[in-house]
């Protein structure tokens, strides 16, 4: 019997590691933004390197999981759903990496009056993505708990949207040049898009949960 479950256990562990990578990526993303805003250049560079490593690990794990699901013809009913869930979750860490990379490349200089709100925005976005990881873990292990996490994803995504709007109003109400305003707006939009990605995965999870509880 143990032999039968050996492959299953290995795959379970890979799914856990994949979600760990996404979760760690969220934390690195938040720390990265804070260190950038506080001009801790060395630590920010470490975060960029870390998120690159985590994103590559997540990609590798996702491919291995997808191959194993097909090769061992596991969960035929939910295979498509699980693969879409993993791919959409991978988009979250991809976006986090993209934000830190663009900050590293473009080195925008944010005005002092918006750095507090930018820090709060990154925290809310991170909390939305974290709630999503918890919901995804629950989908695999404790289906009835998925909803408890999904509503948090929606809450933090809404909060991030509102804060993003406030930030844009502050920026465009200021006296900086239009080029600078558009440059800052770009970063607010990409940071906020991480919460939007988390919301999109949450929508999928909501449907998959209904399908599984039927």
């Amino acid at each position: 019997m143990a032999i039968l479950f050996k492959a299953t256990k290995m795959l379970e562990s890979k799914i856990d590691h994949f979600l760990d990578a996404v979760s760690e990526g969220n934390l690195v993303f938040k720390q990265g933004i804070q260190d950038y805003l506080e001009n801790n250049h060395n630590r920010f560079a470490e975060h960029v390197a870390n998120i690159n490593r985590l994103e590559e690990a997540a990609d590798k794990l996702r491919r291995e999981i997808e191959s194993a699901l097909y090769e061992q013809s596991l969960i035929p009913e939910q295979r498509g759903d699980v693969m879409r869930l993993l791919e959409a979750s991978d988009d979250v860490i991809d976006t986090a990496k993209e934000v830190l990379l663009q900050l590293d490349i473009q080195q925008p200089r944010f005005p002092r009056e918006i750095t507090g709100d930018l820090r709060r925005l990154s925290e809310q976005v991170m909390q939305a993505a974290e709630a999503l990881v918890l919901a995804a873990r629950a989908f695999f292990r404790n289906i009835s708990a998925v909803k408890d996490h999904l509503h948090k994803v929606y809450f933090f995504e809404r909060e991030a949207d509102n804060l993003g709007m406030t930030l844009m109003r502050t920026i465009y109400g200021g006296s900086a040049s239009l080029a600078e305003k558009n440059h800052w707006r770009y970063f607010i939009t990409v940071i906020d898009s991480l919460a939007d990605k988390a919301e999109a995965v949450a929508d999928l999870l909501g449907i998959y949960t209904i399908k599984r509880t039927l």
């Binding site: 479950f5 795959l11 379970e12 969960i75 695999f140």
Partner: peptide
């Protein structure tokens, strides 16, 4: 199934 909280892959097997 609700009580024992098995992993989706375990339920499948």
């Amino acid at each position: 199934l609700k009580r024992i909280r098995l992993h989706l892959l375990h339920i499948d097997m």
